[in-house]
Nucleic acid binder design. Structure first.
Lengths: 349, 349
DNA sequence: TCCGGATCTGACAACGTTGTCTAGGCTCTA
DNA sequence: TAGAGCCTAGACAACGTTGTCAGATCCGGA
């Protein structure tokens, strides 16, 4: 009776039992190592033997088990990418750029979203390390990366992108948030604005504070005072951004222009301004798809996300190729894209 | 002299040589298996022993090597996702949705872009299989997926998304391209348009032909003839789309409305229409960020990309949990989002 | 005929982990 | 106090591959 029950256990015969090199070797009537040689295109196999092995491989549907290979060789030919949100259009080109570089180096890409949660960032990065990725590219969510030190010491190359790492020394590739914001605000100042609002991301996010610093620098350079009610840092959910924008616009002395700290803020502010009775100027950090088609066009401080990713990945692979130099901080320039500039609403007072 | 040269070989002492369970066991003065038990939280270890092991783990900076674990256990707790382009904003939410489901099941996500190249899709998928992912989610670039049959037979669950697989029987999750396009075109017809253009992706892409079929169905249902010069399938690069749109608009009897086959086409057409002397109606497949802010607003047939990804991933994990049922084809509804509807330019003749 | 050398091939150990199985120590009961 | 039974702990093999090494075969030349 137990024998009659057995067939039911496995839904299909030998389901999940893949052939191994041993099976191929047996079928081809050769040794294990010869199969290995054929599979890896190593020299020293007669054409005839090779053909027999190839036939056996095809017949059995053999595919090398890379887990075993990795275990043996110690290198995984894969890198891990921890970003904030796979769904964020800003990071998509970065993701792709990293993939392209990885591909050029024959490596696969494992990735995940930290969702701006330091604990989740940590879990992901360490899970990647357990898989023994050769290298890590991280968009930091947290500000303490000491947890990575054993991994880095053990040889996992690590590059941080978009924001600097906390409490640890490693390569970083950034956009010039400070300079970009300063330039964007200066553009508003040049058009006569004196009361300029700033709405940005939460203060624990490095880029947010850097951009605010740029805002203050531009204001200071122009000799303009900053009323603290014009400045707002916090979550970039539409509700908050909308409320803050409306607050700044409805005071007795309303701001005449706004600087939006990132793409999500800009998108919400654009919607608020579309309903504003009087024209309000806007400059946003990060470019937006279709931004050129809005009227008035939205002037932006654009980052080159793809270049950010490419630079970080190239740096990583240089490390993997054994280049040993002290950790470096690369800051990529931003680009002010002036749109509908002629129509930028002038300041009134 | 050779001995004096040796130190230079390894940049830092024991660099890359990670501690193993054996090292931990030696340091803690316990057996190998006891370390394994502690690392995996298995029962049967006294608190005192456990503490000794934990201390050794911390002191050595041990981290379990998942490659070895995978080799031993046969399951990788990871799934592979082959999409068309990691940088395409349409696929970003799908990507994220798949990640979330994977995460909920304790699996990691490996992904890559096929760049719409069947050969590259194949390479990626097979590379994932060599890594022994538990399952695959594929947005097909090619139309022959027989290469996956040995893998599927060997137990790698596979789900296709966004487009059906070619030549093989597997689960598929799609949007209702046909129905969506028909509804979108019917919307234009309802506003009095009789000469409606269709610009879509290359004919070998399933969604492109399905949407075209929907267009033809809507025209036929309204008793409207279709002049073949109104229909254009091909690469969605801006140059071609722009040229085709301009061609359709500059004929003696120009089209009075356009249906755009996907987000990239819509973006380009919007730009062309912004310069058009007379108003031309537009409905696009896929929603666009900020589409509501354009004037006139762009009416779209929206797909729920996140739901597409979620559905596919859930299906995959059901398979992995052993649910055995014949391959299924799920078709998700689209949603017509009417924008600036009152202002939809009416047909003139 | 024999030998050196090149070429092809396979036996074997090792990579780091987990499953199985057994040994030893302890507690509890009769 | 002996024996049953439980709990903790470790020895060992196995997962599928690759690196090392040594054996077998074949060639040409002496």
């Amino acid at each position: 009776m137990s024998s009659s029950a057995q067939p039911a256990r496995s839904p299909s015969p030998r389901y999940g039992a893949r052939p191994t090199m041993k099976d191929v070797a047996a079928r081809a009537g050769v040794g294990l190592k010869t199969v290995s040689r054929v599979v890896n295109g190593e020299p020293g196999v007669t054409p005839d033997t090779e053909r027999r092995v190839q036939d056996a491989i095809t017949a059995l549907g053999f595919r090398r088990n890379d887990s075993a290979r990795i275990l043996r060789k110690g290198r995984t030919a894969s890198i891990g990418l921890v970003l904030e949100d796979l769904a964020d259009p800003f990071y998509a080109p970065l993701n792709r750029a990293v993939e392209e570089v990885a591909r050029a180096h024959g490596a696969l890409l494992i990735n995940g979203s930290s969702a701006e949660d330091p604990e989740r960032e940590r879990e992901l990065a360490l899970a990647f390390c357990a898989r023994r990725v050769d290298g890590l590219i991280i968009i930091p969510a947290g500000d303490d990366h000491r947890y990575l030190e054993p991994e880095i010491a053990a040889g996992i190359a690590t590059v941080f992108v978009d924001r600097p790492a906390g409490m640890t020394d490693a390569d970083v590739v950034l956009s010039d948030s400070f300079g970009g914001a300063r330039e964007g605000v200066a553009h508003l100042v040049a058009h006569g604005h004196r009361r300029i609002g700033f709405i940005g991301d939460r203060p624990r996010i490095h880029t947010a504070t850097e951009r605010l610093r740029g805002y203050r620098a531009a204001m200071a350079a122009a000799g303009l005072p900053v009323d603290e009610s014009w400045v707002s840092l916090g979550p970039t959910v539409p509700e908050r951004v909308r409320a803050e924008a409306e607050r700044m616009l409805s005071r007795p002395q309303p701001v005449t222009a706004l600087f939006a700290g990132n793409n999500r803020v800009t998108a919400t502010v654009v919607r608020v301004l579309a309903r504003s009775p009087r024209p309000v100027a806007l400059v946003g950090f990060d470019d937006l798809e279709l931004a050129d088609l809005l009227s008035p066009g939205v002037t932006v401080v654009a980052q080159d996300a793809a270049r950010l990713g490419r630079t970080a990945a190239e740096r990583l692979f240089r490390r993997l190729d054994g280049v040993a130099e002290p950790p470096q901080r690369v800051e990529l320039p931003t680009r002010l894209i002036v749109r509908g500039s002629g129509e930028l609403p002038p300041a009134e007072g």
